[in-house]
Design a protein around this nucleic acid. Structure first.
Lengths: 195, 195, 195, 195
DNA sequence: GATGAATGAGGCTTCATTCAT
DNA sequence: GATGAATGAAGCCTCATTCAT
């Protein structure tokens, strides 16, 4: 019996991230992804149902580890709410810093997928977001945070991070991710106005 | 003298915003846009070079008025930096509130266009952003604002706004735009931490 | 406005009959049909939903006229049952004699279509068959015909005709259609056994 | 000496008959046949040159036994011509009654194969047909049968039988094969007209 | 022989764009 | 300018066949 040669599924997924980041999902050609993964076109369909399925799996691979890590943070009783938020930000930055192409795909393609009601977007996304919300809520309850609307806050902060990650990933030399990280944390904590 | 009946160019542009918002630029069909605009498919090409050109014009119609309005605000000597920032936020919200579909297109399709080096994205975008930056810079110089990195700040705030606008436009009943507006202003000014 | 040039739908249908007859439906390529019809590949899809739709329309064009003609025959009060049967046979022969390729498609592709429960096969087929059955039934009732099972008879006679038509269409020189016609009529009337 | 366990070739052939009958040869997938035969896809190609070869072997398995049996009948000096014809019909019915799926494949796929000049269709088919013809001829010579054209007769009768077998195999409850058998024999002998 | 992962040629279909009227 | 029929390049996907184990 012919054995699996290496890990083609992983190869394809990683190639797809690179190609989708470079050209955008809709402009990317399956045959190009196959080339990048050093695999025959048909092999893609051994591992994935269709083009969209690749994208779905990419997002699964984004939100599953992010959720699992955030869960550890959120259940850590030694951390205050603000520390948890800071760790959350670190988590996101660290995750994408190791694979900027993934950041670009994340930023540019998630909305289309979420809008497409035909497909089942990974559950881990909503789980991650809920966990984030509950951290904020607990901070508010304990009197540490201002009384912001958590849902609004979550979309705001995620949108801000996404945009920064995107611009960093597209132009890594414009500013270091650590500088971004510090600024975001500062802004989140203190706002723009000098006290 | 007989004017063009009904201004087909405007009809097409508005139809395209609705269709692109609904289905996404890449999934939208020109023939569908034509139907929505109650115009023949071929007529699209009388007014636009190609499909991408429609999108480009849509963004021109977004950033030109935004820039022109922001210019008025930024040159108003009676306003403080923080007031200008608040007006900027109001400006963006007011602009999209009257046309949520435009918000969705703005959020989802700008990155692809910016990345495409073949096309000349509207200058007004960069002009708008520069103006925003200079307002921040001036606020910092005058000691009113904390010393944040203005470029980082601009991407962060724009990303946050975009994401909120998108979610509001897709689910207008989840939260009122005025509530969003207040929360964003508060967050920007004071941050999350209670003083 | 660009007007329809000639009758492309008819051209395509006729080309498809020829190509499907020559190569079989499954081996036939749409691009080949387009070439044969002197039409661009894409034009096929202006007139037909997909490849199968062409086949469906071909059968519509077979059974509709056959049914309409048989209706005239069956309602003609001057004809006896056996005369009607003879006319029915003539009808089928005359119909295919003018387009042998149509006979081949009819013979070879109808079963696949009938089996495919996804598609709606033309109603005229069943209508035609019912009319044929009722002619036999009336002949039996009037004592002119032997008491055969009409459903069995209908499948038997149609199968026999189909097979003859097919072999004639594939090898028109082996025997003349008129000789076939005479033999079939004789067999149907008198059977094999000499009295 | 160790025999091949379970006779894979036979398993594949029988599985193929079932699958081809269900879905048609062209829609049937080799991998599906392999599943049905509980064999790996690759094993198919150990026993058969390609997909078409399976079909060819199926027809070999149809016409060889039919021919061999008909030979016994035709050389039996105790039988009259009409008895031989009746036995021929019984032979065909008995053969397919034990495997209706085979009847469906026989009906639907033989023409495509016969048309394909690349492949060598089983000799037994022509031998069977010749034998049938010679029975008729002898009946005519001896004055027992009407003077029909034997070639026309053979195509007619075979087509009729095929069509009946097909409809019976697809809808076994519509009519019993024995009833069909009686009707066919009666029709063949006496024809439609009452004497 | 047996396996099933891997292959890649090929075909259907889509749809932005063109063009004759 | 306006139309919408016509075009044809291009891409996703299928699946018979191969081949390394």
């Amino acid at each position: 019996m012919r054995k699996k040669e290496g890990n083609k599924e992983k190869d394809i997924l990683e190639a797809a991230v690179r190609i989708f980041a470079e050209q955008g999902y809709h402009n990317a050609k399956i045959s190009h992804v196959a080339d990048e993964a050093r695999v025959a076109t048909g092999s893609i369909y051994v591992y994935f149902k269709n083009k969209e399925d690749i994208l779905l799996k990419i997002f699964e691979e984004i939100w599953r580890p992010l959720y699992l890590e955030l869960k550890k943070i959120s259940t850590n009783r030694k951390l205050t709410a603000i520390e948890k938020i800071e760790f959350l930000i670190d988590l996101v930055f660290d995750f994408f810093i190791e694979n900027p192409a993934r950041a670009i795909v994340f930023v540019n393609e998630q909305n289309h997928l979420l809008k497409n009601t035909e497909v089942q977007f990974t559950d881990y996304y909503e789980k991650f977001m809920s966990l984030g919300e509950s951290i904020i809520k607990s901070g508010i309850r304990k009197g540490a945070f201002n009384k912001v609307d958590v849902v609004i806050f979550r979309y705001f902060i995620l949108g801000g991070l996404r945009n920064l990650l995107n611009h960093w990933a597209e132009n890594p030399n414009d500013f270091s991710l650590n500088k971004i990280r510090q600024n975001v944390k500062f802004l989140l904590k203190n706002g723009l106005l000098k006290k």
